[in-house]
Design a protein around this nucleic acid. Structure first.
Lengths: 204, 204
DNA sequence: AGGGTGATGTCATCTAGTGACATAGGTATC
DNA sequence: GATACCTATGTCACTAGATGACATCACCCT
């Protein structure tokens, strides 16, 4: 018999998401989250650096999976192909969590403080991808560009995925977004150089 | 005779920067900032939405100047050229404030919370630029891309500018960064599409 | 059995942020 | 020139996020 109910971390996340969905992020206190999880305020802060983090700690798994896939990509793969090599395992990782992902996305979209944190997380992921590419011998500039490009494709596809109903659609959305990126960057109307950069819709 | 010492806003900014530089951001309380400015805590929050904002409110002028320049760019200018049309007035705007800019950059670099806010500000600026381009009739995709590209060029140049000693070097650094961007995006090694995305160095 | 370990609880405290209301110099109105 | 209004600031009270110090106590190991 264990002394405490198992998975305090998970219970806190679960409670937090429920309460955020019920009352909104700001209207939910850490005390309320902890209470629903059968713990105390203090313990919440032992698991999460701050109140926002309870919504983002899941992303660590995403990072792990993606980086591993990039590191394991065929040696012949170019920078962008190495990054997109992560799409398959990522799709698999997410497929069973559409509901949760959607809920989480809605909560984040509704709060500037949370969108702020999400930007930071994305930026952090971009630089991890970049590091991994560098370790594969990709040139510095190409690494930055490929990392950002792949990340944005993922982000766009993710945004579409949570707005529809079919959990299995993720792979298709990823490949569609990638194609769109290619179209945008390929069409150089010979009136100037062609650039590309992350699409991101929600701004304050 | 005025009732209060003039420019409470400016005094608060000044006091804040001094204290952040002396003791660091976290070690400085809002009470201390207000006291040095000869005001109270409550008044600080009447001028700044939160403690972070005291370092970023200056950026509003940057936004104004840049957007105006984009709006006034020659009708024939392409998307990216419209964006970079802001570089000249921006260089002029900053030239006399190297010291301040450097101090501010150091403070921000030293604190995750502040870097977080900076990301948000940059993102906001990107979407304002994008809006302005759209108003000029630029297509949606091109607008996003050009805005992000121009912003990144500016950001990179700014980062280099504050790390050296010549205030007048800003124009040169801007144009060098722009050239670098062109190089990166121009070289399409015919093994895949060529993408581009923002460079940003400082991550947690 | 007994001591150590580690997750949790308890308590105290700091400070960011906000609402309600008071104050008083300056300005406009008659 | 007295009066009423305007407005930037001060005062007070309170909430809640965040953190340090210390206590507790089932479990594990020897």
């Amino acid at each position: 018999m264990t002394r405490w109910k198992p998975d305090a971390h998970g219970r806190l996340m679960q409670s937090a998401i429920e309460l955020f969905a019920e009352r909104g992020y700001e209207a939910t206190t850490v005390a309320a989250i902890a209470e629903r999880a059968g713990l105390t305020r203090r313990t919440f802060f032992r698991y999460f650096a701050d109140k926002r983090e309870v919504l983002f700690s899941g992303a660590e798994q995403l990072v792990t999976v993606w980086l591993a896939a990039v590191a394991d990509a065929p040696a012949a793969a170019g920078p962008l192909a190495s990054v997109t090599a992560g799409f398959e395992p990522l799709a698999e990782l997410f497929e069973e969590r559409l509901e949760l992902a959607r809920l989480r996305a809605q909560i984040i979209a509704a709060n500037p403080e949370l969108r702020e944190r999400e930007l930071v997380k994305l930026q952090g992921l971009a630089s991890e991808l970049e590091r991994t590419l560098l370790a594969r011998g990709v040139a510095s500039n190409a690494a930055i560009l490929a990392a950002q490009a792949g990340l944005t494709v993922f982000h766009v596809a993710f945004g579409r995925w949570v707005e529809q109903e079919d959990p299995a659609a993720f792979r298709r959305l990823l490949s569609e977004s990638l194609d769109e990126l290619r179209e945008v960057t390929a069409a150089a109307p010979r009136s100037g150089t062609q650039e590309w950069a992350p699409t991101r819709e929600g701004n304050r």
